[in-house]
């Protein structure tokens, strides 16, 4: 079985006018893949990614993560999966503003009960990997967008997750920084074998990934193999 297996996933938002967003998603993603999910704004990409990350639930269908059915989990179980299996990278970084870069990065380990000393050591190590050692004691509002996103990536990596879910990770960055962030993700995929799923509506960003999954009107459309990265002429243009 693939690392991620979705069968006939349906999701309807019910505040006010019911909105059927995902209309039977079938998808499987293997361990070690580097894929992007592409589609127009409002096509349901974030909804799908949130279900994958167990941040939200789905109505019907089945979702198997690493062979386990993800359905009707308690909040505690869900939190545990998110903490150990999945790392999140968001468009708006989602760093805690009153915590330093170091404190932000070590927070997932706090929820694993790792002792403080060990946590700080590891957080420093990951910040170093991201080239952020001098910024360890800085607060998010003292850093550039690219730096903040690298702090967020360090935080996603610190629990050694199997999957990284990134929702428009370059959405708030300029093209140069966007390229750097995509290079970083590619490197993590190639060197550490982490499965990475990037949601984007930018062709240039999708082109950096090995497989492009198109989503349209709540259904999976074309799935493009893109190992030669030629889908969009190979550049990120903003």
């Amino acid at each position: 079985m693939a690392l991620i297996e979705l069968k006939d996933i349906n999701k309807t938002y019910n505040n006010g006018q019911p909105l059927h967003v995902l209309k039977g998603i079938n998808l499987s993603i293997e361990r070690g893949e580097f894929v992007s999910i592409m589609g127009a704004s409002g096509s349901g990409k974030s909804t799908l990614l949130n279900i994958l990350g167990i941040l939200d639930n789905y109505d019907t269908g089945t979702y198997h993560l690493d062979g386990k059915l993800i359905k009707d989990l308690t909040e505690k179980q869900a939190a545990d999966y998110r903490n150990r299996m999945i790392g999140f990278v968001f468009q708006s970084f989602n760093l805690i503003s009153f915590k330093t870069a170091l404190e932000n990065v070590e927070l997932p380990l706090y929820y694993q009960g790792v002792p403080r000393r060990k946590r700080q050591e590891m957080a420093m190590e990951y910040l170093e990997k991201m080239g952020l050692t001098p910024w360890a004691t800085h607060f998010p509002n003292e850093m550039s967008g690219g730096q903040k996103q690298r702090v967020a990536i360090a935080r996603a990596l610190i629990t050694k997750p199997q999957i990284i879910l990134a929702d428009e990770p370059t959405g708030a960055l300029d093209s140069k920084t966007s390229v750097e962030v995509m290079q970083l993700l590619k490197q993590l995929n190639q060197q550490d074998g982490i499965t990475i799923i990037v949601v984007t509506h930018e062709g240039g960003v999708a082109n950096e990934t090995d497989k492009i999954i198109h989503i349209k009107d709540g259904i999976i459309g074309e799935i493009e193999e893109n190992t030669r990265h030629t889908a969009w002429g190979g550049t990120i243009i903003k």
Binding site: G53, A79, D80, I96, Y111, R155
Partner: peptide, 10 residues
């Protein structure tokens, strides 16, 4: 929300 996303339990 951020805390929950990175593994905080209720």
């Amino acid at each position: 929300g951020i805390r929950k996303a990175i593994g905080a339990k209720p």
